[in-house]
Simulated assay, not measured.
Amino acid sequence: MSAITAWTRRHRLTVFFGLAFAVSWWAWPFYVAGSSPTPFFACGPVVAAIVVIAVADGRAGYRDLFARLTRWRVGWTWWAVAIGMPLAVLAVASVANVTLWGAPAPDLGRLAWADIGLVVAFRFVDPLDGPFGEEPGWRAYALPRLQEKWSPLRAATTLGVVAALWHLPLVTSGMLAPIGLVVTFAITLVYVWLVNHTGGSALMALVFHVAQGAISYAALGFTGADADRMDWLTGALWCLIAAGLVLADRPAWRTTPAAHAGPSSTSTAALSG
């Protein structure tokens, strides 16, 4: 066993997080200097998971990652939650924007549903987009290992801080509103709650993430100040939902079910963080 392999096995999460940031942030200074078209690559977490598994775990690690990303037998109720919750938040925020602030009402009949369907399909497989770029790393790889050592609440808040900081290049470049960092932290709690209630299914997190961005503000007719207000409205709703889940489902945040707390295809001893 090489020294690099041995060190990586002892510090899987440290290496994973370091690689995730390095891969996603490498273009940031070049963007600031005007020599890169983008400051950020969303594929950092999935690339980091693939690399760390290759060095430290091999086939067993890939089997575990694949099992979490394809765990679809979770009950129709959780499918409805994963798809319906993000759409409900968008709908409530849109109604508030129209009724309280006079934004133009969306014309759902004029939405390009075929285009939305293509966007949804592409987001499931595009590593440069948020869902597939993040979920195999954050929820399928890092979360189980964090929960081997900590309670779900501590694991979720830690991952929420990391994921929020990871988005910093988007904020400094104006591609993400600053409130997005707070929302990222809050919605991480929702992701963890969903994954833990579905037997460790990172697929549900992927579906949730795809649904969250399936319909843009622009597609609904919100532009300018109306679109900016949507960021605040949806952000406030996600913060309320996260707080509500923590307060209303306290047992879920104390102990992770043993069946999906850590890697399912290999021993905890072999794959400790």
Rank of each mutant, 00 (worst) to 15 (best):
A93E: 01
L233S: 08
A225S: 15
P45D: 11
A3D: 12
F17E: 02
T268Q: 13
L170M: 14
L65P: 00
V182T: 08
G44R: 00
E135T: 05
A177G: 03
T172H: 07
T99H: 15
A6L: 11
W113T: 04
A205V: 02
A248Y: 07
P169A: 06
R123D: 14
P178A: 10
S201F: 04
I4F: 15
A3P: 01
A219I: 02
H260V: 08
M204A: 05
A242T: 06
L170S: 10
R250P: 04
A177L: 12
I83A: 11
A105R: 15
T268N: 13
P251C: 09
A54C: 06
V81E: 03
A140Q: 06
G44V: 00
D64K: 06
M85D: 01
A270K: 13
A214Q: 05
S201Q: 06
F30Y: 13
V46R: 05
P257D: 10
V120N: 10
T172M: 09
A27M: 15
H197S: 13
C239D: 04
V52G: 03
V95S: 02
A186I: 05
L143A: 13
A105E: 12
T223P: 00
C239N: 06
V183R: 01
T188W: 00
Y31F: 15
S267D: 14
T234N: 04
R123W: 13
A88W: 03
L240S: 14
T8Q: 02
L181R: 05
D107Q: 14
V120C: 13
R154C: 08
G18T: 12
V47L: 12
P37E: 05
G58C: 07
G137P: 01
L146D: 06
H167D: 01
P86N: 02
H11C: 05
L13Q: 10
L220F: 08
R12Q: 14
R229D: 11
F66M: 11
A211P: 06
V161R: 01
A20C: 05
W76Q: 10
L165M: 13
Y62V: 07
P131D: 05
V182F: 09
G200A: 11
P178S: 09
A186R: 04
W25L: 12
A91M: 10
I215H: 00
G224R: 08
A202R: 04
A33L: 13
A96G: 15
A33Q: 12
I241M: 08
L111V: 04
S151V: 10
W26T: 13
G213W: 00
T266P: 01
V52M: 06
R68G: 03
T266V: 15
L128D: 10
A211D: 07
P106G: 08
E148Y: 14
S2P: 12
F17V: 13
A93L: 02
I215G: 01
T70K: 07
Q212N: 08
G133L: 12
G18D: 08
L118M: 13
G58E: 07
T14I: 15
P127D: 04
L247V: 14
V51H: 02
T157H: 06
F40A: 06
S267R: 14
F132S: 07
R250S: 09
W253K: 08
T188D: 00
W79A: 05
L170H: 07
A163L: 03
F124G: 03
R68M: 00
W78D: 07
A3N: 09
P127G: 03
L170E: 09
Y62G: 04
Y31P: 04
G200W: 07
L159C: 11
L100Y: 12
V207W: 07
T266A: 14
